[in-house]
């Protein structure tokens, strides 16, 4: 071995890295395995079965979980779309808007949801909706999600835009394109990988949220996390593991898409 790798390698670091991966994945793998357990009890393994997946779709609680899943996905899609649009506009102003007085303040405002602890945002939003007499329900969840998803959508978009030289747009405008045209035809397509990443990030953050939703949800409006939390309180049931496994698959799918989008972006 050369002296160079010698300096870099530390005994045990590889072991710890593998341990780290085991810790990260063990709980998820165990839950995935047990979701295929035929037994009603979560402690005994009685063989492979898709029974609990069937239960999720046709069992006694299926109506509740279907509605919750629909709510979750609708809220995540709408909130991610709105916050991505807002974040794209904001990033354009911050990165392509020159130096101006409100620039730092705007950045601070946009990253506010990242700095305030989630439980505090939840409490504040509850108090706010209550004091303006806004009835809690589907709409309050949607609005709250849109607001706190903005910085998550913003970060990858800004990072991408900073990597694009403005010479492309300048060139387009030299050829008599208007600013709007330069933005739509030149900048926006170049920014697409950042926008897609931002959208996916916002989507997952919205889908993931429990604390804020729990505070601002109204009568009978559940999202998947709140519905799962309600069920888990009375003990972990195999149907919850089946739902978890399916959500796990959705998350992994999203991250994989995002990974390849950003990778294709690097190879350009």
């Amino acid at each position: 071995m050369s002296a160079k790798t010698d300096v870099k390698t530390f005994f045990g670091f590889k072991g710890i890295t593998l341990l780290c991966l085991v810790i990260l994945y063990a709980p998820l793998i165990v839950v995935t395995l047990y979701s295929f357990n035929a037994s009603k009890s979560i402690t005994v393994w009685e063989g492979l079965s898709f029974h609990w997946y069937l239960d999720v779709f046709v069992g006694p609680e299926s109506a509740k979980f279907k509605q919750a899943a629909l709510n979750s996905f609708v809220i995540a899609i709408v909130a991610a779309t709105l916050s991505t649009a807002i974040a794209t506009a904001a990033a354009t102003a911050i990165v392509r808007g020159g130096k101006f007085r409100l620039r730092t303040a705007s950045l601070g405002l946009i990253s506010l949801p990242l700095m305030v602890p989630e439980i505090v945002t939840a409490v504040a939003t509850l108090i706010f909706f209550n004091s303006i007499g806004f009835t809690r329900g589907f709409l309050t969840i949607l609005v709250a999600h849109t607001a706190f998803c903005i910085p998550f959508a913003y970060l990858p978009i800004q990072a991408r835009m900073q990597g694009i030289e403005d010479t492309y747009e300048q060139a387009a405008m030299d050829l008599y394109a208007t600013k709007t045209q330069a933005f739509r035809r030149v900048l926006l397509p170049l920014m697409m990988p950042g926008i897609v990443s931002g959208f996916l990030l916002a989507f997952i953050v919205s889908l993931d949220d429990f604390i804020i939703t729990n505070f601002v949800k109204g009568a009978g409006v559940e999202t998947l996390p709140t519905a799962i939390f309600g069920s888990v309180k009375q003990g972990l049931k195999p149907n919850i593991m089946a739902i978890s496994t399916m959500l796990l698959a959705v998350s992994i799918m999203m991250v994989t898409i995002s990974y390849f989008v950003s990778k294709s972006d690097n190879t350009k």
Partner: peptide, 13 residues
């Protein structure tokens, strides 16, 4: 998370 915003190189918009 306060993104720095990088240097304001461009003022196109």
């Amino acid at each position: 998370g306060a993104a720095s915003g990088g240097s304001a190189a461009s003022d196109t918009y």
